[in-house]
Each structure stands twice: as C-alpha cells, then as structure tokens.
Amino acid sequence: MTVYVIVQLKMIDRAAYDRYQARFFDVFKKFQGRLLSADEKPAVLEGVWDRDKLVLMSFPDEAAFRAFADSPEYLEISKDRKAGADGIALLAKGFEQRLKQG
C-alpha cells in the first residue's frame, strides 16, 4: 500500500539545510520514492501555518520508506537537515482501491 510522507519545516540554519538539500537527491534516487512537492510558499487555505516549507513524498509501501529513512546514506545527510530546520514529519497510509468486476 502506498504511503505518503508529509514534512513541514521551519528553517533555523539555512546554510545547513542547503547542504542537506544539495545531497538529498543523490540518496533519494537510490530508493523507490517519488518527490511530489517541495514548496516554500504553499497556499494556506485554513488556519495558521508557521512553517517555511512543505515536502510531500510517496513510497510504494512502508518498507520502502523505512529502507530510505534508515539507510546509512540518509542518516548521514539528515544531520544537516536536523541542524538546519525544525521538522514535523508524518507518515500517512494511502487508500487501497479495488474495483468490483461486474
């Protein structure tokens, strides 16, 4: 079942975050994820949003996400992400749709 990773970031050290971002795709492309959005100016439709960036990714299943997130390569670069931005990360399961055949 597809899973989605939603990350909301508040920048605290842009230079550190930029180092992370520069190395992100070299790691990410080794896994089965898809980057769906990385928006620094998402439209707030309701409520108050105090973050600077929203990132949306998908993976074929939770195991694929965990392989990425727990990989030595990602753990190494994530040090700059954690130093550069305060993050809220969510893992959401997608819907599994089955069509009835008539």
Rank of each mutant, 00 (worst) to 15 (best):
W49R: 04
G87D: 10
D50T: 05
Q101D: 10
M57K: 01
A38H: 00
E62I: 14
K53G: 07
D86E: 14
V27M: 04
E76N: 13
K41P: 02
I12L: 11
D86A: 13
D61S: 04
R19I: 11
Y20A: 01
E40T: 12
I6A: 03
R81L: 13
T2Y: 03
E40P: 02
K100I: 15
V3C: 12
M1F: 05
T2R: 05
D18E: 14
V3N: 10
K93L: 11
R51S: 11
D52F: 01
Q32I: 01
D13E: 03
L99D: 00
R14E: 12
Y4D: 12
A15Q: 15
V5Y: 04
A43E: 11
L99P: 01
K53S: 07
I12K: 15
D80V: 08
I6C: 02
A43Q: 13
R98C: 07
Q21W: 03
F59V: 08
A15H: 13
R14L: 10
D13T: 01
R34L: 08
A83H: 04
K53D: 00
A63T: 14
F95R: 12
P72E: 01
V3P: 03
G102Y: 05
K79C: 01
A16F: 11
D50K: 07
D70C: 10
R34E: 08
V55W: 00
I12A: 05
L45N: 07
G84N: 07
K30R: 09
K30C: 07
Q21D: 01
S58E: 15
L99Y: 10
I88A: 13
G87E: 15
R23I: 09
S58T: 06
V5L: 09
S58D: 02
A64D: 14
A16H: 03
D18W: 12
L54H: 06
A16C: 00
K29R: 07
G102E: 00
F59K: 01
F28Y: 07
L35I: 13
V44T: 13
T2I: 06
R19Y: 12
G84V: 09
L54I: 13
V44I: 14
F31H: 09
V3M: 11
S37Y: 04
A69C: 01
G102M: 10
L36M: 09
F68I: 00
R51T: 11
F28T: 06
K30D: 02
Q97R: 12
D39L: 06
L99A: 12
G47T: 08
E76L: 14
R98Q: 15
V48A: 13
I88P: 06
G94H: 05
A67Y: 08
T2L: 08
T2P: 06
L56M: 12
A16P: 05
A69W: 13
V3T: 09
K100S: 11
R14S: 00
E40I: 02
I77F: 05
G33I: 05
R23A: 15
D70Y: 08
D26W: 02
D18S: 02
F28N: 06
D86F: 00
K82Y: 08
K10Q: 02
V5A: 09
F31N: 10
K53M: 14
E73D: 15
